[in-house]
Design a protein around this nucleic acid. Structure first.
Lengths: 303, 303
DNA sequence: CCCGGTGATGCCTTCAGGGTATCACCACAG
DNA sequence: CTGTGGTGATACCCTGAAGGCATCACCGGG
């Protein structure tokens, strides 16, 4: 009758490993049990999920579909647990995640004016975990930068901001007023995020070094392992003696959005989204936040 | 460990009825079983969900949070079942839902050019079921009209279109070129949708008659039970001898969006969204779809 | 003070989920 | 050609949770 989430979790493990024995090992159950559970799941769904021919387990079309759906589904069950526990503790906290350089406090203050009983917590998130943090409920709402996997999320565009190139101090373009993408073509790239989550979408197809967070980016660039790109506002908060920032106006601007887990039904969250939208308009248009207005053109709001 | 969806479904029933005995009856299980299952769920979540004091069961804060989350979660499990079954049948179909008057075929044709192997099915949806149809997978993608409960959905705005007032033939404004909201203030309203799903958000707070679909709306208006409002394009497809349409330019325009279940991860769906966005731009701007470009006053009237 | 209706408890049965031992199959080394 | 290692499937048993039935504890209204 109801989908069995335990079997679904087992399925995900088998689908990842494509090996019953090792999957069972990881799940700390015996292999025969796993075989039976998967078969039961197949019977329940009325579809075979794996082809077990000689030497090798392979996903069927149905299996691929289930694997694609299972992740968000399991994540949202975890999110439900978190939210219920929070509500049971008489939760008056809202966890707001943000990528480096995005100002959270204006929206938080506007929000706390309307909800004096709710405490806003803020927490840094990174490109490689921003979606997961939202999906499993570790943050209620997140200021994210594109690209992001929208599956399971409600994503509201806020504004865009130009990007800067991050170059080692001795770089041949380090003294330029600005650079173009063509100038830097062929340079090895220090890219932001885990290669398994965002293998495409990087500005250059070059091999390079995967990093987490702005600090690591700066260290790698300073060490001469490559160059990188940052949203301009992020560059304001981080500096390194052996690194320089050079505007690269040609590069597509960084898009800042507000994201909420699609399963997250809460008036409090909705109110924060509203507050964030109006304060984003103010920061973008009036520039009462210094770093937005630093040099160059004002940040443009994204339609 | 894993959330138990059976218990969750039981919980939803109890939370709806606020009565263990009747909930058990509806679930076709014995009442003691239900009591134990709910208690087990409370223990599993580490939170009490109901206050069972004398004469009445009441939801706690945690229970309200769980009730809000449980619906989308259970719906998405049904959606997963549907999608897996579809994939197992070697599904090459895409079910597209649409509200009355929204042209689907341009996007469907553009989509089928890119996916000759996929058959696009279209299906009418209504304001009171548009979200549910998407959430439980009965349609893969939906052309919806706002307002819609965005929980569990990814909603992409497409365009807006003006609305018309729907008046009985003998109405005092039936011969006007256009009317304003103030003109019609105080008129009883035939509103679209189930009162439990959209009790707010109607243009007027008047009492009125809930209906499903455009046909019923016209019947009620023709019978003199009230007036109503429609997107202009919807009015093109439906006529009634005793009903006239009058433009009401002042009223906020109807917003047409494309919605997808947030849990629905599929390249095919993403491609349809892309196709819909570009064709929406074309229909809105170039007017190769007649009814979109009809001049504001060219709305059809029926004496 | 009893009575009807509520949800909770106690006890039993059934069956799904877990374990161990083993089989059937196949590639490959000797 | 045959043994061997490694794969997933099958057989069989045990435990615990879900279900049913009977009953209790509680409380408001005659």
């Amino acid at each position: 009758m109801d989908l069995d989430l335990r079997k679904l979790r087992y399925f995900v493990t088998v689908a990842d490993r494509l090996h019953f024995g090792r999957a069972a090992d990881e799940l700390h159950i015996a292999q025969p049990v796993l075989s039976r559970q998967i078969r039961a799941l197949e019977q329940d769904l009325g579809a075979s999920l794996f082809t077990r021919d000689r030497h090798g387990v392979e996903l069927t079309d149905a299996g691929r579909q289930l694997l694609a759906d299972a992740g968000p589904l399991l994540a949202s069950t975890h999110a439900v647990r978190r939210r219920v526990s929070a509500a049971a503790r008489g939760n008056r906290r809202l966890m707001v995640g943000f990528r480096a350089g995005i100002p959270v406090m204006p929206a938080a203050r506007a929000f706390e004016d309307r909800h004096p009983d709710v405490v806003v917590d803020v927490q840094r998130i990174e490109g490689d975990n921003q979606a997961a943090m939202l999906l499993d409920g570790r943050v209620d709402v997140g200021y994210v930068r594109l690209p992001i996997d929208e599956a399971g999320l409600r994503v509201t565009p806020l504004y865009t901001e130009p990007r800067v190139a991050v170059l080692p101090a001795g770089h041949r373009f380090a003294d330029k007023e600005e650079v173009t993408e063509a100038d830097l073509a062929g340079e090895p790239l220090v890219w932001h995020g885990d290669p398994s989550t965002q293998p495409t979408k990087r500005p250059h197809p070059n091999a390079g070094y995967p990093v987490r967070g702005v600090d690591e980016t700066l260290e790698h660039v300073a060490a001469g392992r490559g160059i990188s790109f940052l949203a301009r506002s992020a560059s304001v908060f981080y500096s390194h003696p052996d690194v320089v920032y050079v505007p690269i106006p040609e590069l597509a601007p960084d898009q800042v959005c507000l994201a909420v887990a699609a399963s997250h039904t809460s008036l409090v969250v909705d109110d924060f989204v509203t507050a964030a939208q109006s304060t984003a308009e103010i920061t973008a248009e009036c520039g009462n936040y210094e770093m937005w207005q630093r040099g160059g053109d004002a940040v443009t709001r994204h339609a």
